[in-house]
């Protein structure tokens, strides 16, 4: 029995609350870009991806690469709520000897398919896995979640050309288009628009979606799975800091630390 979109929304709320608790407890971490990515992660981990939390290395599983690696809190919370890791372990995030490093480490955390950290590198990894799958005749798909600010990295566009050239239809990228990066608006710093057109001219199948609308996301992932001969990118329109009104669209919440009072206020918004 698949969870309904309403149940998925409830799960997303739990994951968002986990993110806040983790960052409060750790004293650091990236809240804004974690909160904007939660609904995409919930759609993937609860509905879209073929996976088995009891067998994190199952060969036929769909792969997930968190190219926007600073959203690690959201991914860890999703993995915990999905049963890969103990929910209590979330409180060890960023601490000495924790299985939850600041950025995802495949050797420390079950469910992490690739160690990542330096921006702009995830799509190349996804392409390589997808090429190997094709060579081996395996049917799993590879998902890669990127930040929009990452599109400033040249390697993203190298990988964009490679995936299209090789017709990697088993690759599905998602861009968390929250229009904010560490120093401010992406459009003020170095404009990315028209982002969808850029990917279209790179010969990708492009789907624009509301990245907080679970139904739209599920429909888009389903469309992506049916596309042949072309990789797909979901340009997911999102809100940085989504779910906590005083954080929404505020670039300072990229990596600001929480006080107890702000934490209480944020948790109230997500109750």
């Amino acid at each position: 029995m698949s969870p309904t979109p309403i149940e998925l929304r409830d799960i997303a709320k739990v994951v968002r609350r986990d993110v806040l608790t983790m960052v409060l407890e750790a004293g650091s971490g990236h809240i804004g870009g974690s909160l904007s990515a939660v609904d995409v992660l919930v759609a993937l981990y609860w509905e879209v991806m073929r996976l088995n939390p009891e067998r994190p290395h199952w060969e036929e599983r769909d792969r997930f690469i968190l190219s926007k690696a600073h959203a690690a809190p959201a991914l860890y919370a999703a993995l915990a709520r999905r049963g890969y890791i103990d929910v209590k372990a979330l409180l060890t995030f960023r601490k000495l000897r924790s299985q939850l490093q600041g950025f995802p480490d495949m050797h420390k955390t079950p469910g992490i398919d690739a160690s990542v950290g330096s921006p702009g590198q995830g799509l190349s990894i996804a392409n390589g896995i997808a090429m190997a799958a094709r060579r081996d005749g395996r049917s799993f798909r590879v998902y890669c979640l990127m930040g929009d600010g990452e599109a400033h990295e040249g390697q993203v566009w190298e990988a964009g050309m490679t995936a299209a050239h090789h017709g990697l239809d088993n690759v599905c990228a998602i861009i968390d288009r929250n229009r904010m990066m560490g120093d401010g608006s992406t459009e003020d710093i170095v404009a990315l628009s028209p982002l969808e057109d850029k990917w279209r001219t790179f010969n990708w199948h492009v789907i624009g979606v509301d990245g907080h609308n679970i139904e739209q996301l599920l429909a888009a992932f389903s469309e992506a799975a049916s596309v042949k001969g072309q990789p797909t990118v979901l340009v997911a329109k999102t809100v940085k800091g989504k779910g906590v009104p005083f954080m929404e669209n505020k670039p300072e919440w990229h990596d600001r630390t929480l006080t107890e009072e702000l934490y209480e206020e944020a948790m109230k918004a997500l109750s």
Partner: peptide
């Protein structure tokens, strides 16, 4: 190099 990483992971 990144693509090679993916191939190696697989």
């Amino acid at each position: 190099i990144g693509t090679a990483a993916g191939l190696a992971l697989a």
